Simulated scan of single mutants.
Amino acid sequence: MDTGVPSPAEERLAAAYTALLRRVSACAQAVENGHWGYLETKAGELAGAAADLEGVAALAKEAGHPVALRTVLADVAARAGNDRAVRALHPSS
């Protein structure tokens, strides 16, 4: 049920997904500026964020509790603010 208030599982999903998108944005910025050392660092962080998201998603799947997509995306938008990856991938959020 979508109450607009994120459940703990929805909060974990939103936090992990936001972290991943922030790393994507940082990688894009590094490429645009030709900062290869920064890209290397952020790419490593991106891999870690992807692994974290994988774990959170697996836990949500195993728990079998319904997750409200709109609630998760609203939480992502609230956490990410003006992050370029969030804007690009979820313009209506």
Rank of each mutant, 00 (worst) to 15 (best):
T18Y: 00
Q29I: 03
T71A: 06
L59A: 15
A47G: 14
T41L: 12
A49N: 03
Y38G: 06
G37Q: 10
D75Q: 14
S25R: 01
K61N: 10
A28D: 02
H65T: 15
A30R: 00
W36F: 14
A16N: 03
G34T: 02
G44D: 11
A49L: 06
K61A: 13
L69I: 13
V31E: 07
L59F: 07
V76E: 04
P66M: 11
R12Y: 05
V31Y: 09
A68Y: 08
R70C: 06
V76F: 10
W36M: 13
W36R: 10
G55F: 14
V67F: 12
A30T: 01
G64W: 07
E54Q: 15
T41Y: 09
Y38E: 15
L20Y: 03
A28C: 04
T18C: 01
G44W: 08
V72K: 02
Y17K: 03
A30S: 11
T41H: 15
E62K: 14
A16Q: 05
R22M: 00
A49K: 04
R70G: 15
V67W: 07
A14H: 04
A15P: 00
G34N: 05
G34A: 05
L21V: 00
N33W: 06
K42L: 06
L73C: 13
A19N: 06
L73I: 08
G55V: 07
A60R: 05
A14G: 02
E62W: 07
L13V: 13
L39F: 15
L20Q: 00
E40R: 15
V31H: 04
L39Y: 14
A47W: 12
G37I: 06
D75E: 15
T41E: 15
A50S: 15
A28Y: 00
G44C: 08
N33Y: 08
A15K: 03
L46P: 02
C27S: 07
A51F: 09
Y17C: 04
